[in-house]
């Protein structure tokens, strides 16, 4: 396999990746690339093949078919060189609970063949970067979940890898720590490639330059964040009516494409981007005394795209929020926050 012609700025290249567990196909023909300076948000519901892909990228799992190259080295042909260029924080941070923080990071640095002269400097640098100065002599097992998570991140970047793969890095952290870690990831993204798997979609919006959504082992979306948002043409109006009419009447308003019932008095109207039915709605509301008390223009958030792309079982033409999968329930609080922000 010749990677000599590969763009030197492409740090991760995945080509036609397949992975079977016996007869179950967890990853189906995935191909993508991550370049230097990009932060890729990797999204997908549980069991979609996200973790499998991450494990294959880090060499802890072998692909059934396909090619993976990290930092220009093929993961199967030159595993050691490829892994040298890689920092990985698994879903569950791999920490030895009987070691001290600095001792553990020193071990990780040596494990990645850092010259012994540079080990101390590197360890001090990550301890500083990840805000571990106060706990550097403490036993990892005695640290709180948030600090353990930070040690996990420190472990992934101690050898300054060109590719950093983080599986849900901000889980279990308090809001201030989340901000710090996000700043850190943003910083990493400038000089390295970062792949970030997360359930928190606002994190993707805040951090990532690229987004990928995987469902049932297949990539259902690959785009830049800007491209994704410019693509969102359909917008929504959230309407609150004290004496709502029959849904049919709402649907009859010109330019309204679909009506979703949120609760007894709240409705979500879908309309095309260039025709806003707000004016006609207000007129009709006054004429028929519907009692309009709320009118919120709502942009489709990443959550909604995510839900629509990953909810394959439910008919696409009738996207009612009441019949969503359990996944969207987890997201609903986040979604409500989003709507309030929009208001």
């Amino acid at each position: 396999m010749n990677h000599g012609n590969m763009n030197s700025d492409t740090l991760i290249s995945v080509k036609h990746l397949w992975r079977y567990y016996d007869h179950f196909c967890a990853v189906k023909d995935i191909s993508f690339e991550v370049k230097r300076g990009q932060i890729l948000g990797f999204l997908g519901p549980n069991g979609a093949g996200k973790s499998t892909t991450m494990q294959i990228l880090t060499g802890t799992l072998a692909p059934s078919l396909g090619e993976v190259a990290v930092g220009g080295y093929d993961l199967l042909d030159q595993p050691l060189a490829a892994k040298q260029a890689l920092g990985y924080l698994p879903e569950h941070p791999p920490l030895y609970h009987d070691m001290r923080v600095d001792e553990f990071l020193k071990f990780c640095a040596k494990l990645h063949h850092l010259p012994s002269a540079e080990v101390t400097t590197a360890v001090n640098r990550v301890i500083d970067q990840c805000g571990l100065t106060g706990v550097r002599k403490r036993l990892i097992g005695n640290l709180s979940k948030g600090y353990q998570q930070r040690v996990g991140i420190a472990q992934a970047i101690v050898h300054t890898p060109s590719v950093v793969i983080l599986d849900e890095p901000t889980i279990g952290l308090d809001p201030i720590q989340i901000r710090e870690i996000r700043d850190l990831i943003r910083q990493l993204g400038q000089a390295h490639s970062v792949i970030l798997s997360t359930h928190i979609l606002s994190e993707v919006q805040a951090l990532c330059s690229q987004v990928q959504i995987i469902n049932h082992g297949q990539l259902v979306l690959t785009d830049t964040i800007e491209g994704l948002f410019s693509q969102i043409q359909t917008t929504h109006l959230q309407v609150g009516l004290r004496r709502p009419p029959a849904i049919e009447q709402l649907r009859q308003i010109r330019e309204v494409e679909a009506v979703e019932v949120i609760d007894e008095t709240h409705f979500r109207l879908r309309h095309s981007a260039d025709h806003n039915p707000a004016e006609e709605l207000v007129e009709k509301s006054v004429a028929n005394q519907w009692g309009l008390f709320e009118l919120v223009p709502e942009k489709r958030s990443l959550e909604q795209i995510f839900v629509e792309l990953t909810r394959t079982e439910v008919a696409v033409n009738e996207p009612t929020m009441t019949t969503t999968s359990p996944l969207s329930d987890n997201l609903s609080t986040d979604l409500i926050l989003k709507v309030k922000e929009a208001a």
Binding site: G59, T60, P90, Y96, C108
Partner: peptide, 14 residues
Amino acid sequence: RNRTLPLLLSSPVS
């Protein structure tokens, strides 16, 4: 058990 094996497996060590 402690799921620390990925640390060794993902590092450049055979």
